[in-house]
Each structure stands twice: as structure tokens, then as C-alpha cells.
Design a protein around this nucleic acid. Sequence first.
DNA 1: CGCGGTTTTGAGAATCCTCAAAACCAGTGG
DNA 2: CCACTGGTTTTGAGGATTCTCAAAACCGCG
Lengths: 253, 253
Amino acid sequence: MPGQNGRAFSSRQYPCEKCPLRPLPVFREFEKQELAFVSTFKKGELAVDKGATVLVEGNHSAHLYTVLSGWAFRYKLMSDGRRQILNYSMPGDLIGLQGSLMGEMQHSVEALSPMLLCVFEREYLPELYRNHPGLAYDITWIASREERMLDENLLSIGRRTALERAAYLIAFISSRARAVGLNGKTPVRIPITQQHIADTLGLSLVHTNKTIRKLIDRKLIVWRDGGCEVVDGERLQELARWEGLGEDRRPLI
Amino acid sequence: MPGQNGRAFSSRQYPCEKCPLRPLPVFREFEKQELAFVSTFKKGELAVDKGATVLVEGNHSAHLYTVLSGWAFRYKLMSDGRRQILNYSMPGDLIGLQGSLMGEMQHSVEALSPMLLCVFEREYLPELYRNHPGLAYDITWIASREERMLDENLLSIGRRTALERAAYLIAFISSRARAVGLNGKTPVRIPITQQHIADTLGLSLVHTNKTIRKLIDRKLIVWRDGGCEVVDGERLQELARWEGLGEDRRPLI
DNA sequence: CGCGGTTTTGAGAATCCTCAAAACCAGTGG
DNA sequence: CCACTGGTTTTGAGGATTCTCAAAACCGCG
């Protein structure tokens, strides 16, 4: 049943055994039985359009997703409309864990590009914890990784200057994208607008624009096709005074 | 062996069965066998002085702690000394989970007051996951709760005005403290300096002082004995445009 | 060509910063 | 009891950053 509300449920297309992400070197090897369970845990796939809302703050979601392809962002709104983007999601990332654990979503998620999501049933989570301690550990690990990213973002918004912040954000997203193989011969195009950047950095749109322009003028990034590409990641990272991702292999649920 | 480095290891004083925190209504009931395991999981207690560093960024910690009493804060430093406080810890909170899962600590923790900590061995964590899925779930839940708090803090720093931010922070800490029964007849005294507040809100000390003063002048808080007390939590929350904690019962490891 | 979304520019105003010094306060030692 | 000390809070002032308002330019798309 395609098309409703920017969503389309498809029957499964990628069986977990042939997951296009799993072979990537960032993801740790899985036991055969772990893979088997994940496979039963997976209910199907969901295609969402660019701009579609995947999860809504305040809702009680029955599902949990892993991004197969595409980009999204997680955000919170204040009652008067102020928006804060909390983090970005890209292939391999889990979406909606907080909601699955705590009942109610405390943030919303919106697609930045067309996406393909693996859908998992929240109600199988207890079984996962009962019978697959390794996977349970992985899920905690993933939650902890998100926490680490938030720590870093908090440091950034709280203590970096506008220019450093912008440099950090773009270097950060680009590093993560690189880790999941989103760089072909040409660098990844990060599909965000300056409004998204502003809402991530805690700056106004106007000032964000002037800041981004500096990065462009210094030839650290380019802006094209409604998105941004990193030209010189090294200098970007240096400008941000950022130590880098420092991530090893990680699990993929 | 008391005294070294502001720490003192004591043999166990509070057996888990007589935990002074567990009876509080915020904490969910535990199964007998869960309690038994937590009891074996607990290695002893650690007393730390005010100002002592409990965990250091970059270190590989063998332990995991639960706060029995006292206050602490979690923070990150940039190479040039800028500090960002990420969150506060109070009785019932777990400390050092990130380090236990990911190997290396990505933040430091410092005591705001004398503290008593329950010490757990990190190496028993796999056993916990293997034999106590309920507790494993709880740990993930706790990680997720921390993530939720960080989301909220990020929204605050990114999108609230200085006055709203200060109001939010104090209302937030005070709500959490109230939940774990830190309010006697008189309101809790939050043992922080304005420098801590500045480093949490991402503001300078001078501006923080002027902002806090407004809260005092409006009789929303008082400042005394080197700390702050909430006078009117309702109006504080309203001023911050904050929805409140909205927390149900939670596990206590 | 017209349209909506996005980026860019300019300008004055508000917020927030740094620097610098004073006031305050608890604890320490004379 | 008093002076001294270090940490914390307070005040003032000028300057930098960032904001809001407003409008223009740009750009892909129907």
C-alpha cells in the first residue's frame, strides 16, 4: 500500500542475510544465530519520502527502525515553534529506541531524503533481551553511542564559536557518512539546508548563512545541489578543534 | 585505606537488601533474585570528597557506580580549557556506564559534595546480560533516560534565552532532586557555584551572574550557603517554558 | 513565466562577551 | 579577635557577536 502520508510499506526486499550494510568494515561480525534472530525480528521495510515525518513527539510507536538508506534528523519543538535538531541519522543507525523503551517518543524524526527503513516490532524486544544477551548488549551500546554523540554536540553548542560549531557539525556528519561508505569517488553531498544547520547549531538563519559563507570562502566546503560537500575535512576538523570520531567497529541491528 | 586522592574505600556498609534508596516510590520493585544479583554485583562502597574527580576522560575504568548520596557533574574539556558540563548526577543515578560499555571514558565526573558510591565490577556486566535480561533491559533504559535528559539540555542551550535557560536548569535539577526525596521540610540546596551554571548553560560567568540575579530578584530562587534553593518551582518552570520531567518509576541498579 | 523554497545582503538593535576591579565570605593562622 | 587568603559573587563599561526585520537574488520546477 504505497503512497499514504509519504510512506510505502513494501514486503521485505533485502533479507538480513543479504543486508547491503552488514559487509561494511564498520560493522562487527554477527553470529549466525544472532543474524537469524534479527531476521525474524524484522517485520518488513518502509520507504519514506523526503520531508516525511517518521516519528512524532508524544506518540507511542509500535516500531523500531534501522536506516537502510537515506538521511534523517531527530528534533524537538518548543510550544512556540522554536526547533532544535538533536542529531542526524544515516544508514546503519537505529531510530526510535527511546520511544520503544520509554513508551512515549520525546522527539520527532523527519526524513532529509528518500529513505528505506528496516522495520522491527517493538514487542519482540523482551524476547531479544531474554534469548540474545549479545544483541541486548549491542542495543545498550548503541544507546550509549548516541549519548556520546549528544555529549559532543552539547559541548559544541555550549562552548564553540559559531564558526567552530559549523565546522564541527559538517566534519562530524561527513565523518560518520564516510564510515558507512557514503563516499564514492566524489565526496558525499549532505542533503541539508542552512535552516537545518541553524536549528542544529542554535543560531539564526542569517548568522548561519554568514558563517557557512566563511567556510565556503576558505574553501573548506562547497555548497551545491541544495546540500553541502566537504572539500577539506582535515582543516575543517582542525578549525573546529575537534578530536575526531574515534570509533571502532559497531553492531548493526 | 582512607584518604588517598580524596577517596576512601570502605568495606560494604549498606547491603543492597537494606538500600536506603530502594524503598523510595520513584524506584520500581525488584524481584528477589534481581536484588540478589545486584548484591553480588556490588563490590563495595567508595567515599569521595567534594571536588574529587571520580572518573577521568580518556581513562579506561574498571568500575561502574551508583550514587548512594551526594552530588556530581559530568563534563567535557576542550584542549584549550573550555569546559562544558553535560549533566548532573544525584542519588540513584548510574555513573560510568558509557566507559564500561565503550572502553574509554569520553567525559569526566567530579563530585559537587561529599559522596558515597556503590561500586560495581564492570566485568560482571556480561553475566548480568546473560542471566538477568530484566536488569539488562533496565540498564538500556537508564542509558536511554540519560539520552532524553541530554536531548532536553541540548534544546535548552540551543534554543532558550539566557533567562529561560537558567530557569530551566534549576527547575530541572530541583525536580530530579525532589523525585529522589532530597526535599525535607526545607527545599534542597543545590550545591553548585555560578561558574558551574555558566559552564552548563554555555554562558560567561558574568552574564550568568546577571541572569541568576534576575531570578533572585523575581523571588523564584534564593542563593545561600554557596548554593541555590528553589522558591517557586512552578513559576520557574513556566518561565523556562518547560513541560516538566514527566517521569514514571524507574529501575535502580 | 511564475512560484515556493532557499540563499544572500544590509542595517540597526539586543544579547552576550571580555576585562578589570570591588565586595563579600568562610576558613586559617597569628 | 583580627588580618589574611582564596574562592565566589557582584558591578561597570566598552566591544564583539548574534539577533531581528526586511528585502533582494537565486534556482529548480511545473
